[in-house]
Simulated scan of single mutants.
Amino acid sequence: MSTASTIATDLTERVRATRDAAQRVRLNALRMGEVQGQGYIGQALGAADILAAVYTDQLRHRPEDPEWKERDRFLLSTGHYAIGLYAALAEAGIIPREEIETYGSDDSRLPMSGMASYTPGMEISGGSLGHGLTVAVGMALGLRHLGSDSRIINFLSDGELNEGSTWEAAMGAASHRLGNLIALVDMNALQADGPTASVLSIEPVEAKWESFGWEAHRVDGNDVGALLRAFDAIGDRNPVGRPHVIICDTKVGRGVPLLEDREKNHFMRIEEHEWAICREQLIAGYEGARR
């Protein structure tokens, strides 16, 4: 087999494994949402492909040792996306899959908003948006001073691009040439106050990051192949160089038409009888795509 064929086959296998993982992440998220009957389930479904790409294909970690010194760090700036991250942590074996049944319950390690003090594998407590990238810059700089080649991957939302602290951090990362920092921007076009574009226009997003000194890639964030190719384009671990951003256009509720089409889908209340419909639609769509 030629080298080109080997690379193509390898990517095909990685895409297949990541798609399968993303499906399981979505199923985990639906189960957690059903426990509470409501929540940020649309964001979890929309970001599942990104989270699966990170935990299945990219992140250097040890599931049995979440505090492993040489690990890469995944920072969830958008604390309300915690349901999606828990779903990915369960898929990655960092938390027991059966523990997702405790989501949002009293004394659970899986609160509705991400808290680093509670949950294995949760690196920061996401909360007021705009802080995650600032923390990521400090972590990336500290790791480089320690001589580590570990990466910091920061997940943030398009709504966070409204925050001045995000752009201050972006300038700092470029100034310090933090080649060990990757930002993932979930461009789902929605925030609490309504469509992102109508709240405060943020386009042209790719050009803005590039003007701040970042290497920018924009992809369909629900296309696993495109996500993996974007990560591959970043190349080898190099703690000194331009920081990287992958701008991911996603759809809230991806994979579940019932939720994709809801008018108000930032925080959803889903009726008891609808959860079975959600699972059926998710499974049918996935099986149809695999044929």
Score class of each variant (00 low, 15 high):
residue 113 S to D: 07
residue 188 N to A: 10
residue 168 E to N: 12
residue 201 S to G: 14
residue 165 S to F: 07
residue 145 H to D: 13
residue 162 N to H: 15
residue 183 A to N: 06
residue 132 G to Q: 06
residue 193 D to S: 14
residue 148 S to E: 13
residue 186 D to F: 07
residue 136 A to K: 05
residue 179 G to V: 07
residue 166 T to K: 09
residue 213 G to Y: 03
residue 108 S to R: 05
residue 184 L to R: 05
residue 127 G to E: 07
residue 107 D to N: 15
residue 115 M to T: 00
residue 147 G to M: 08
residue 163 E to M: 10
residue 137 V to C: 13
residue 180 N to P: 04
residue 196 T to G: 04
residue 140 A to Q: 08
residue 133 L to H: 02
residue 125 S to P: 04
residue 143 L to K: 11
residue 157 S to T: 10
residue 186 D to E: 13
residue 196 T to P: 02
residue 168 E to W: 11
residue 212 F to K: 02
residue 109 R to Q: 13
residue 118 Y to K: 15
residue 149 D to W: 02
residue 138 G to P: 07
residue 143 L to F: 12
residue 173 A to N: 11
residue 142 G to C: 08
residue 109 R to W: 02
residue 153 I to H: 09
residue 178 L to T: 00
residue 142 G to T: 11
residue 194 G to T: 00
residue 109 R to M: 14
residue 138 G to E: 09
residue 154 N to Q: 13
residue 162 N to L: 11
residue 169 A to P: 05
residue 163 E to C: 07
residue 172 G to K: 08
residue 116 A to W: 07
residue 150 S to C: 08
residue 202 I to Q: 15
residue 213 G to E: 07
residue 181 L to I: 01
residue 192 A to Y: 09
residue 119 T to I: 05
residue 197 A to H: 13
residue 151 R to T: 00
residue 147 G to K: 11
residue 210 E to K: 14
residue 208 K to L: 03
residue 169 A to D: 10
residue 174 A to Q: 05
residue 135 V to Y: 11
residue 123 E to I: 05
residue 119 T to W: 00
residue 182 I to Y: 08
residue 110 L to N: 09
residue 139 M to L: 15
residue 117 S to F: 14
residue 112 M to S: 13
residue 137 V to M: 09
residue 112 M to P: 01
residue 156 L to R: 04
residue 117 S to E: 14
residue 126 G to E: 06
residue 105 S to Q: 15
residue 137 V to P: 05
residue 112 M to E: 13
residue 206 E to Y: 03
residue 154 N to C: 15
residue 192 A to H: 04
residue 166 T to N: 12
residue 180 N to I: 02
